[in-house]
Design a protein around this nucleic acid. Sequence first.
DNA 1: GCTCTACTATGACGGCTGTCATAATCGACG
DNA 2: CGTCGATTATGACAGCCGTCATAGTAGAGC
Lengths: 198, 198
Amino acid sequence: MAVSERGPRERMVFSAAQLIRRDGVTATGLRDVAAHAGAPRGSLGHYFPGGKEQLVNEAVAWAGRYAAKRVDRFLAEMSEPSPSRLFAAMVRQWTDEFETVGFTSGCPVVAATVDWADSTESTRAAAADAFAGWSRPVARALTGMGVPAERAEPLATLMISALEGAILIARAERDVRALTTVARELAPLLDGAVIRRT
Amino acid sequence: MAVSERGPRERMVFSAAQLIRRDGVTATGLRDVAAHAGAPRGSLGHYFPGGKEQLVNEAVAWAGRYAAKRVDRFLAEMSEPSPSRLFAAMVRQWTDEFETVGFTSGCPVVAATVDWADSTESTRAAAADAFAGWSRPVARALTGMGVPAERAEPLATLMISALEGAILIARAERDVRALTTVARELAPLLDGAVIRRT
DNA sequence: GCTCTACTATGACGGCTGTCATAATCGACG
DNA sequence: CGTCGATTATGACAGCCGTCATAGTAGAGC
């Protein structure tokens, strides 16, 4: 095992995340996922014996890990890190996508929460894990920049909340205005939380 | 006409909004809406000749008007208005619902955006209108409290973004933590935008 | 070469969807 | 009383859904 070079299973999870974040969980059919992944429909039952529920949960988990990795990458690429610059990078990822690809897709974790949080417990838990796994590196980054430990987690929650909300508004308005606005307005508050720093 | 005492038509729009904010747009069937409203299924085609699309759009518009009215009511009930207190009231509406009714339902406008923003143009536009109609009274309230005109609208966008995002996280976590956090963390920034005031 | 496992392929199944056509029913108005 | 419009009732329709059963095809290990 181990070195499977991007197998059909992984492709299906990835495709599921892409379709879910565009059309929602309910509107995304398993046949669509297989077709989008270029994978045989008959493999779905094999790789995901738990059915659609398992596939959706894995897609949500994948999205959470992806978001967390992006935070680490933003941090590594930053020459002079600051909370506002980290938030700006997180926001810019979305303004870039909206302006180049279009406003067709949002966040898969949000879609899963909206569509299945009340009906499918395991998916609700997967979404909660995704948010937690995304928030953790953000909070860690903030403490690394000099934000007191007790404020890092609340500020990370605020950042993710504002970002997710702005993504929704931007999608509805087909305008990145909400995203650039929250980045600008939140900047002084975020940088003001830094205590020590040369 | 005019004095129709909460007719079946209005009840169906209301029921649609309730079901949509719990299960999402796609998972909400027209038969469910009629049953929830205690209305005859055969009436759907009569009152909404535009089909499900029309019903969903009216439900979204209704939700937008409702949110706007709530802002005005919060303002009227406030003895010493301040931006942070207005935001706290908006957040408290949701913490109250989550703690009493449970975490079953979110915001219908968000559900419509997630499920149909990319596939149904009219619904996307209805969601944008709902956000705009909700943002307007918030911005107006801020200027009334002494926030400079050019900052009122951006701050209103930030408030609604953070609120919507926190609602999503709270639903996923089944915990109001995210909501109380954004209310607390955003308070000094909001009140700091007030210029003149006795 | 055989075997056994992993994967693929295909179609059927019941159930649900939104939409529409047709009728029956009601209620007011002339 | 009769009529006509608005509302309700019911069922049919094609289409999609997730799931499952069955069968076919590789491909590695011995």
